[in-house]
Design a protein around this nucleic acid. Structure first.
Lengths: 244, 244
DNA sequence: ACATGTTGAAAATGGTCGTTGTCAACAGCG
DNA sequence: CGCTGTTGACAACGACCATTTTCAACATGT
């Protein structure tokens, strides 16, 4: 530890200045982390291994990340962001009805998982193994948010029926995750479209079920209503991240 | 390590002979393991800690278990067996129809989880963190088996519709797990019956959806048919446990 | 060229865990 | 009683890993 006195005399190195070099190393570590966590898993990926893969030494690891978990969180965040962007793009050009919206989102997500299984593993499997937060199970990513938003906008008076839209969204999320994980662990044998359709059965059937329950209950029936547009990302932290 | 020559002079101790003493210590370790894994989690439970809780020393740990994972597997197996027995008992006295069968099973399982949250944590959460098997996600316990069996007996010609009953069962399983985990992490605030009903929505809606799809497809329609009795435990290892 | 920032390689530190061993006190049993 | 199995408490060893530190070689720019 140096004194925090003298201006730390920053200097370029091979044409790039310190901040850029740090960012570059951080990038290498993120790549290596995705590769390691996404193929060998969190537990099996030691810091040394990751550094070797990044062609860096441990010193630079701790330059950018507090510890291994911090790297995992960063890798996970980037992967989640990537998936979210792809999903939102797919939804933007999808027909705005209750049948196509889930299918568009599922196609985007599942297709991405098949194209890069490391994302599938990091986002669905390893996230549960790292001590990231106890609530990784709970609807907390963009996909789950969308489900709840969609459910609520389709059937705004579910609560009058004694149904908690959050729980339903969580269950739908779980059904998708479990099917997707099984597909992943099986090595993506079936075509994407088949998995999409199997996942979509849950969304279709839930929509029908909820529509029917509404139709035999108090408020005015709302038949095959078009779902509300997927507007801006309305991030509402459903649950506090357990502060490590 | 002794010579394996002389009959190792076994002797009683406080009225019990060696085998019983070993079994008794194993029992203590299983109890301590459930307590440790079920409250603090797998990662946070070291061998020394578990031994202290069992009021035994490490020597006796390795007498009964090869390592910490082996203990976890044993704890998990016992918990799974316990849940399975309770579920089968509940099903035995439940009305044999598609509405009550899932509810009876869900009531038994969720009630047990609320009465002993350690079981919930070990069976749903920690099992994914221990290196037990990669396929903990995949339908592999008695509950998931029941789901698939029930689905298939209700709608034997799903395959003709291009629907894989195994995937559907896996998805139903996932929806239940995710709802149950959320309930668990929330501290079991809602009453059991409310969670049962939310989980049951998925089973109800799936039954309706599949019935409708069958009715508009080739084979003869089979309206609200009674589900086949839950006969003997037909254990068919769906997937090989990753060895080691 | 010289002082200093920067890098790569690797050693040092500290902790945990699996595993084995030591030792004194105690219990069964001839 | 006295021999030996048995127990409990705990030290000891080696391995592994995360994290920190050292050090010599190299790059920069003045």
């Amino acid at each position: 530890m140096h004194d925090s006195e003298s201006p730390p005399g920053r200097r370029k190195f091979r044409g790039v200045d310190p901040d850029q070099r740090v960012a570059q190393r951080r990038e290498q570590l993120l790549h290596a982390g995705l590769e390691a966590f996404g193929t060998r898993g969190f537990q099996a990926s030691g810091v040394r291994e990751i550094c070797a893969e990044a062609k860096l030494t441990e010193r630079y690891f701790y330059e950018s990340f507090k510890n291994r978990e911090a790297l995992f969180i960063a890798v996970h965040e980037r992967a989640a962001k990537q998936i979210e962007v792809l999903m939102v793009e797919a939804l933007a050009i999808a027909p705005r009805n209750a049948r196509e919206i889930p299918r568009a989102a599922l196609r985007a997500i599942l297709g991405t998982y098949r194209d890069d299984p490391r994302l599938a593993r990091v986002l669905m499997i390893e996230v549960l193994r790292a001590n990231v937060n106890d609530t990784a199970f709970v609807a907390s990513d963009a996909f789950a948010q969308l489900i709840e938003q969609m459910t609520l906008s389709l059937y705004p008076n579910l609560t009058a029926l004694g149904i908690d839209a959050g729980l339903i969204a969580n269950g739908l999320y779980g059904s998708t995750i479990y099917i997707a994980v099984r597909w992943t662990l099986d090595g993506f044998k079936e075509p994407v479209e088949q998995i999409v359709e199997h996942c979509a059965v849950f969304y279709d059937s839930m929509m029908h079920e909820l529509a029917q329950r509404e139709s035999v209950a108090p408020p005015p029936p709302t038949p095959p209503a078009p779902v509300a547009a997927v507007s801006e990302k309305r991030r509402m932290p459903r649950r506090k991240q357990s502060a490590r």
